[in-house]
Amino acid sequence: MTNGIGRAAGALLTYGFLGLMAFLSVFPFLWMALGATNSSIDIIKGRVLPGAALATNVSTFFTQVNAPLVFWNSAKIAILATVLTLAVSSLAGYGFEIFRSRQRERLYRAMLLTLMIPFAALMIPLFIMMGKAGLINTHIAVVLPTIGSAFVVFYFRQCTKAFPSELRDAAKVDGLKEWQIFLFIYVPVMRSTYAAAFIIVFMTAWNNYLWPLIVLQSNETKTITLVISSLASAYYPDYGVVMVGTVLATLPTLAVFFFMQRQFVQGMLGSVK
């Protein structure tokens, strides 16, 4: 009897805790969506009901912000960074795993140590380098330092361990060159690895803030993340407009998450299993 009550209390506690945590996790999203429909004053006053200001907020957002250009900038940077990162990282992950040598093994371990380098220690030299190269305020300057990522190389190397060596042997017998084996056999076979890596690298690039903040100085080159930040840091921010911006900036990643949840989680986990 006491056992039954104890178990019921335990279940209540478990579900209560999980329910509360789930609610707290989701609430800001709800609040963001509701915020886009309310006036700035109502938002600051803590209103959590749908309002009538959606149209006003949206039109103010589109007059204050050159939205197509800003989204194009974000998309351009994110896609360029992702494609280049995936290309060079998968080449290296494959190279380190398939063509092993003692020197490359040493370099690989040294490369993994770069995961501990904080960006703050790189930004001043990088800024000076980009200045000397005349690349300040260009999207190339944003993308270039992000392509060589030890983490993505590590991810591809771990996944390459599952690449069947019979496929390589058969291709060799057929007379394929190494680059052909990589391009025509490895890439198609590993497409789920690419998908997971794509999501993570794209998200990181889309959401990147500190480096673009330093490098991109004119309104014509700014990304959506920078625009939201500057809208919200105005002396009297119009929160309705800010909410429209955050909704629009979050929608792409939210959509990717819901449609590709499995690859999303796989990419986050990397190869830690």
Binding site: L18, M21, A22, F23, S25, V26, P28, F29, W31, M32, G35, I43, I44, K45, G46, R47, V48, M203, W206, N207, Y209, T225, I228, S229, A232, Y239, V242, M243, T246, A249, T250, T253, L254, V256, F257, Q261, V265, M268
Partner: peptide, 30 residues
Amino acid sequence: LFRTAIFLPCVTSLVAYSVLFKGMFAPDGV
């Protein structure tokens, strides 16, 4: 469902959620 809900914050950008929290934690905020 619980897992998805608790994982959901990971999809936001650091800037977007900071801005949201700034609004939610305003003096008379929610």
